[in-house]
Design a protein around this nucleic acid. Structure first.
Lengths: 333, 333
DNA sequence: CTGTTAGCGCGTTCAA
DNA sequence: TTGAACGCGCTAACAG
């Protein structure tokens, strides 16, 4: 790969002049510029982003760390992030940590060591995440999505997960269900705890006592939810409704029910969470919790870029609300 | 952010010694090493990957450019890629180009300018891709997945898309269908052409003449497929079967059929393509074309890393075969 | 075992 | 309008 010196030599100018042309400065003689551009083309020269970033201390790249890149929940969020980032001239780097706190930490270190100007993190794990605190203290540009940590002066895009869990459960209660099970998300995920908390809150308000045996954990995938759903549905006193912590698992629940010969929604009501694109399009259309995902993504990216380009920005907490979308999986319609 | 000189100063050694400790060389006095490590900890020092990459001419990162990061088709492929890459100590950077050749080209340039050691490209677009040829000629480590370009001595992981299209269509023909429509993929995608070619081949072999009005293009999404499917299903002489170029669109077709009051599979047979996880789990379970996606991903990553670490490797073409998975969406079962 | 020197490829003063 | 010199943060070659 040719470098800037090769170009300079060929164009018979100094490296500085080549650099000027490269960066579109206007204090370059037209004829000189022409020669430089020609040399660049002839050599098929491509400036090293690495070297440039090193000297400018800027990579024009933002890192996105998420729990699972294959989760359709992220698809619209990512679109929002990409649209905004591109508009501002940033590239994006994704890292998928699969709910593994160790992989997550590794990726944070990987990306932080000069590879990106800032970090967008979504999919928060349980446990020691002091390094997140450190990043905030060191004023490393950072946006945390989905969650909100007390006493941490950072930029948050919060989603009302507890409220969502509450809405979902109350809907089932309103339909007369009393024996309502919950297929929770990944044990390592904070959102699991929050949605579970919303579920418990709704039960408590309705005077339904909490039955631990009705709550099982899975991993936010359809395949993972099937066995645990079967366990729930084989309980001596079978639940009449199940709230799944995301849509993929809701389909796992429905699949399990079908295998056991139960009709949804007649014999089992199911509520999901996320409102992924497919939720309205497959059978049965899913009653679920909707979140403004595109807006969340674009807002997160915008907020991060603001931080990067203006270090003085105040940390803010933006909370997005969720809403219940009633379709056919609980027979309410 | 502290740098290596700060550490050196604090530990009262030279930068070189710090570098030695950092890179785990064993020719360092134990006491010295201890001091250095302590200084590193005290300063919370993190070496700059940028600077390191610049001097080593190695980033330990591979780039993955794909058509649409939100497409579940890629989920298992990505898992395969990640597993292998991590095993070999590489990080991964994804870029999603959404079938836009311009964005794709931009991303190639973005990543090639020193940000990655090699590139994995999947989701090939139609049109001028001479820069891909250039990369091959410049011996830039590269693996192309899904497609196979004649006269290009590069590393290919091909998938028999034509064969898949053929299998799908022949299955429908075998069930007695003669009026078979095709919802093709994105017009910019090479795989669309290939699957379409397989479709045409099967029709030709069965003596069914090709009817252009039965082929419509969409964008590989469920939402996108719904309107075009409705158009097909509103034709004066309605098709009795539809082969969709991926599973997401197959669900779009099924949704459209339902909206028009048509029962699947009784009044319309549907075949998909990809065998995404959900395909077996939602109603109706989809008859579709299966591809060994995890293996494709891991093989692609392995092959790329071989190229990166051993420049002498011969370009190879590996072709993965597809297979038909019969479920319930065409009533064959 | 350790330090000095050089250089990776570029941008940015400062003078000329 | 152009170039020389310096430095971004790090590793590698060589000497001691």
């Amino acid at each position: 790969m040719p470098n800037i010196s090769d170009v300079a030599r060929r164009a018979k100018v100094s490296r500085t002049t080549v650099s000027r042309v490269l960066n579109g400065k206007d204090d370059v003689n037209e004829e000189t510029r022409r020669r430089v551009l020609e040399a660049i083309r002839e050599l098929n020269y491509r400036p090293s982003a690495l070297a440039r970033s090193l000297v400018k201390q800027k990579t024009d790249t933002i890192g996105v760390i998420l729990s699972d890149i294959t989760d359709p929940f992220f698809s619209r969020i990512i679109q929002g992030v990409e649209d905004v980032a591109h508009k501002f001239g940033y590239g994006i780097v994704y890292a998928s940590m699969r709910w593994d706190p160790q992989i997550k930490h590794n990726y944070v270190n990987f990306l932080r060591s000069g590879r990106v100007d800032g970090l967008l993190m979504m999919g928060h794990t349980v446990g020691n995440e002091d390094y997140v605190r450190e990043m905030v203290e060191e004023r490393f540009p950072l946006v945390l999505v989905e969650y909100w940590i007390n006493n941490l002066k950072a930029n948050f895009i919060a989603i009302d997960n507890r409220g969502g869990g509450y809405l979902a459960t109350r809907h089932l209660l309103g339909l007369g269900h009393r024996r309502i099970a919950h297929v929770a998300g990944h044990k390592n995920a904070r959102v699991s705890q929050e949605r579970l908390a919303g579920y418990r809150q709704a039960l408590a308000e309705a005077g339904v006592s909490y039955d631990e045996s009705l709550v099982v954990y899975s991993d936010f995938t359809t395949e993972g939810a099937i066995p645990v759903a079967k366990k729930l549905l084989s309980l001596p006193e079978r639940p009449t409704a199940i709230f799944a912590a995301n849509d993929l698992m809701a389909y796992g629940v429905i699949h399990a029910a079908r295998e056991l010969g139960l009709k949804v929604p007649r014999e089992l009501a199911v509520v999901g969470y996320d409102d992924i694109e497919l939720a309205s399009l497959v059978t049965p259309p899913l009653t679920t919790i909707h979140q403004p995902r595109y807006e969340i993504g674009s807002m997160a990216a915008w907020s991060l870029i603001q931080q990067i380009e203006n270090k003085e920005m105040q940390p803010t907490v933006t909370e997005f609300k969720t809403s219940l979308v009633i379709r056919e999986s609980c027979g309410a319609k």
